[in-house]
Deep mutational scan, measured.
Amino acid sequence: MQRVNMIMAESPGLITICLLGYLLSAECTVFLDHENANKILNRPKRYNSGKLEEFVQGNLERECMEEKCSFEEAREVFENTERTTEFWKQYVDGDQCESNPCLNGGSCKDDINSYECWCPFGFEGKNCELDVTCNIKNGRCEQFCKNSADNKVVCSCTEGYRLAENQKSCEPAVPFPCGRVSVSQTSKLTRAETVFPDVDYVNSTEAETILDNITQSTQSFNDFTRVVGGEDAKPGQFPWQVVLNGKVDAFCGGSIVNEKWIVTAAHCVETGVKITVVAGEHNIEETEHTEQKRNVIRIIPHHNYNAAINKYNHDIALLELDEPLVLNSYVTPICIADKEYTNIFLKFGSGYVSGWGRVFHKGRSALVLQYLRVPLVDRATCLRSTKFTIYNNMFCAGFHEGGRDSCQGDSGGPHVTEVEGTSFLTGIISWGEECAMKGKYGIYTKVSRYVNWIKEKTKLT
């Protein structure tokens, strides 16, 4: 034993070699072989497995989906700052455009905790909710729209109204504003409101030439003092309507412009014939205590009207009353817009006519005020429907199939267009061939041609 100890002390290297040989010859039971080890760690190889990531292109799944990435790591994937920024906006807080917040056709661009709407022409605001041009839906104005110097929408209202708090709607500024039905039992019968379409306001006024200088022999019209197929109006439903009495009662109609003036057809009036105007009328054979009678003290036909040349060209006249009318729910003026808007309103496509005229061709006159909704007829169809001249200051309205029309005794009465609950004068009943005849239409004086003249002559002093 002493000898062994001496050998170990003198030859430590020998001992180490012996131990190493023993270990190498022993069977290893701690580690699995290569094949079995792979069965336990069965993990798919990654895209760049075996390579240094710093030297390969980034992978979106590896960089940002398996674990949260930084902007720089995302930049490695896209290799483009702009594309990385677009991805980053949604990656950080989701897609803010998912709810489609942009209105009126706006395009949404996502941002971090926010979004941006790219608005089409005519709109602005956070969600493109603000109209900035009158060309689109009248700028959301209830009545009139004008573009300011910086191309912003400025709404306005006709006389007797003021802008509401929203700067879009119009509200009454006087007790009985024009064009409004205020009798409670008839307010439910107000005709369907007309909503502004998209309009090209630059070209809204037709490029028409008034044929002022045409000389033409007097034409022989049949029954051209021209509501057939209409309905009984309720008291106060058309408070701007008046009836004219002269040699015979209810020979023509008219509309209240203001307390002192009536507008009617020029062919209705004769110099030297006494005319009485009755406002607030409903049943011409009954006294309903809503009527107001006034005498006409002055007749002003349009300066281009000449019955000797043509009885229905420039067929418009103004009547001055001896005493002002007292405005109330049964006696209310009709609204008159400017030339541009009167023309736009007419193009809405349908209007209402009213009167006490004959209820059928050569038949009896109506006792109760009649009204009828009539569609506008395109000019080409209008011209083809008659052998008589249709001037540019006239328009056609009615039904091709016949059966409904204005008729004798309705002449001078109103053709009105309702705009968001307020009625505007767009025409004056003038003439036609018979009444409600198939293929024939009622012919009306186009008020847009005469609004400046009306307003100039009827100013209240």
Rank of each mutant, 00 (worst) to 15 (best):
G421A: 06
A436D: 11
S184A: 11
T417P: 00
M8F: 13
E165V: 12
F348T: 15
W118T: 15
Q185W: 14
A26P: 03
K438D: 15
C170P: 01
C435T: 04
I210A: 14
T426P: 00
K45M: 03
E288R: 06
A266Q: 02
F121S: 14
Y330E: 04
D378I: 03
F360I: 15
N452S: 14
V174G: 06
G398A: 05
N245Q: 09
C28V: 04
Y22A: 13
P120H: 08
S411C: 06
I428H: 03
T264P: 00
E98Q: 11
D200E: 09
R46T: 01
L189H: 13
G253L: 10
E418R: 08
E281C: 11
D150R: 09
D249A: 09
S385D: 14
T381V: 13
E54C: 00
H415M: 04
M6W: 14
L130C: 07
V154S: 11
A173I: 12
K347S: 13
D315W: 01
V447Q: 00
S11Q: 08
K387R: 12
N135K: 12
D198S: 13
S448Y: 04
S448G: 08
E61Q: 06
S354F: 07
G236I: 06
G442Y: 05
G363C: 04
K311P: 14
E98L: 12
T445A: 05
L369A: 14
P177W: 01
V227T: 13
E61R: 04
E53T: 00
N306C: 05
C335E: 00
V278I: 06
G106R: 03
F121H: 15
C335T: 00
P101A: 05
D198Q: 13
Y47S: 11
M394N: 14
G105I: 03
T209A: 12
G398C: 02
A397D: 02
T417E: 00
C119F: 02
E66H: 05
L376E: 03
D110P: 14
Q219N: 08
M437S: 14
G351E: 01
V181S: 10
N59S: 09
H314C: 03
T276Y: 06
F238L: 07
H282P: 06
Q96H: 13
T422R: 03
R294C: 01
R379Y: 10
N310M: 05
K459W: 06
V248R: 13
Q143N: 02
L52V: 05
R46Q: 01
D33F: 06
A164I: 06
V326S: 12
V56G: 03
S70R: 04
T271G: 11
T218G: 09
P172G: 08
C252I: 00
L325M: 04
G409T: 07
D150Q: 10
F348L: 08
C128A: 03
V368G: 10
I256G: 01
K188E: 10
T290N: 10
L14C: 12
I429G: 13
V227H: 07
E73I: 01
T186W: 08
G412F: 07
W356G: 03
T417N: 08
Y91D: 04
E35P: 14
K455M: 07
I275E: 01
D150S: 11
E285S: 11
T133A: 12
V419R: 05
N295Y: 07
N127D: 08
I336D: 00
A279D: 00
T271F: 08
P12W: 07
G179I: 00
A149N: 13
C117G: 02
T342W: 01
I262R: 00
C117A: 02
G230I: 15
T84Q: 04
L19I: 13
I344G: 09
T461R: 08
P175E: 14
K459L: 10
K89W: 05
R43I: 00
S430K: 03
V30W: 14
R379L: 15
F251Q: 08
Q370H: 11
A366Y: 09
L367P: 15
H302Q: 04
S184D: 15
L372F: 13
Y161E: 00
L325S: 01
L369V: 07
C155Q: 01
P333Y: 00
G363D: 09
E340D: 15
M6I: 07
P177Q: 01
K293H: 10
Q90L: 09
A436S: 10
C128H: 03
F399D: 08
P235R: 09
V4I: 14
F176V: 08
Q408R: 09
S217R: 07
L23N: 02
K455F: 06
N127R: 10
L244P: 00
V296L: 03
E286W: 08
L369M: 15
L14Y: 11
P172A: 11
P414D: 04
M394I: 08
L20S: 02
L383H: 15
N113G: 09
S49M: 06
R3L: 13
L367I: 12
G253V: 14
Q219F: 09
D232S: 11
V228K: 10
D111A: 12
G58F: 02
T190G: 13
H267G: 05
T342H: 03
S430F: 04
R191N: 13
L325I: 03
I344H: 15
K362L: 06
D111H: 11
